[in-house]
Amino acid sequence: TFTSIVTTNPDFGGFEFYVEAGQQFDDSAYEEAYGVSVPSAVVEEMNAKAAQLKDGEWLNVSHE
């Protein structure tokens, strides 16, 4: 299960995956970082959410 939350205070020191406002979700980078295949429906969902981000916001993507 993939989830996401919007934050204005990303923790770059941890093992977190963020999408910056104005960027798209990079499923290849996510797969490389976590060894998890990302279904195309999830990629579309995360890109739709990322498109709604305002300046200074980040989308924190995770999975269980």
Rank of each mutant, 00 (worst) to 15 (best):
D26N: 14
G22D: 02
D55P: 15
F25Y: 03
D26K: 06
E45L: 10
G13K: 10
F25R: 00
Q23P: 01
V19S: 00
D55L: 13
G56E: 04
V36S: 04
F25D: 01
I5H: 14
Y30Q: 01
N47R: 07
P39L: 04
Q24C: 11
T3H: 14
N47Q: 07
Y30L: 02
N9I: 08
E57P: 01
Y34S: 05
A21K: 10
G56I: 02
F2S: 00
P39H: 02
F15C: 15
W58H: 03
K54P: 01
T7C: 06
V38W: 00
E44H: 10
D26W: 06
P10M: 03
T8V: 09
Y34V: 04
G14E: 08
M46D: 05
F17K: 00
G56V: 02
S37N: 09
A33C: 14
K54R: 11
Y18D: 01
E45M: 09
F12I: 07
E32R: 15
V43E: 05
G13R: 10
D11C: 14
K54E: 08
F17G: 01
V6C: 08
V36T: 06
Q24H: 11
E45Q: 09
E45F: 08
D27Y: 15
Q24K: 13
E20S: 13
S40A: 14
E57N: 03
Y18H: 06
V43L: 08
A48I: 13
S40F: 11
S40P: 14
N47Y: 02
G35V: 02
F25N: 00
E16S: 14
M46V: 09
S4E: 02
F17M: 02
S28H: 15
E44Y: 07
D55Q: 14
T3M: 11
A29R: 10
F17P: 01
I5T: 14
G56P: 01
V19H: 01
D26G: 04
G22V: 00
G14H: 08
T1G: 12
Y30I: 01
M46Q: 03
T1K: 14
D11E: 09
D27K: 15
S4P: 03
Q23W: 07
V36G: 01
W58E: 02
Y18F: 09
T8R: 13
F2K: 00
A48D: 14
H63S: 05
P10T: 02
S28N: 13
F2A: 00
F15K: 14
V43S: 06
E32Y: 10
N9A: 11
E44W: 07
K49H: 11
G13L: 09
V61H: 02
T7V: 13
S4K: 01
S37A: 12
G13W: 08
K49V: 11
A51D: 08
F2E: 01
D26H: 05
N47P: 04
V38H: 00
G56Q: 03
D11T: 12
S62A: 09
E57R: 00
S37H: 14
V38Q: 00
L59C: 01
S37Y: 10
E44R: 09
Q24T: 12
E45V: 09
T1Q: 12
Q52P: 00
Q23V: 06
E57M: 06
Q52K: 09
T7L: 07
Q52D: 11
V43Y: 06
D26C: 07
G56T: 03
N9D: 11
F12D: 04
D26T: 04
S4T: 08
G56F: 04
N47E: 05
A41T: 11
F17R: 00
G13E: 13
L59I: 04
Q24L: 14
V38K: 01
E45S: 08
N47K: 05
S37E: 10
V61P: 01
P39Y: 00
Q24A: 12
F12Q: 06
E20I: 06
L59Q: 01
K49M: 14
G22R: 02
A33I: 15
N60A: 15
A50F: 00
Y34A: 03
G35P: 01
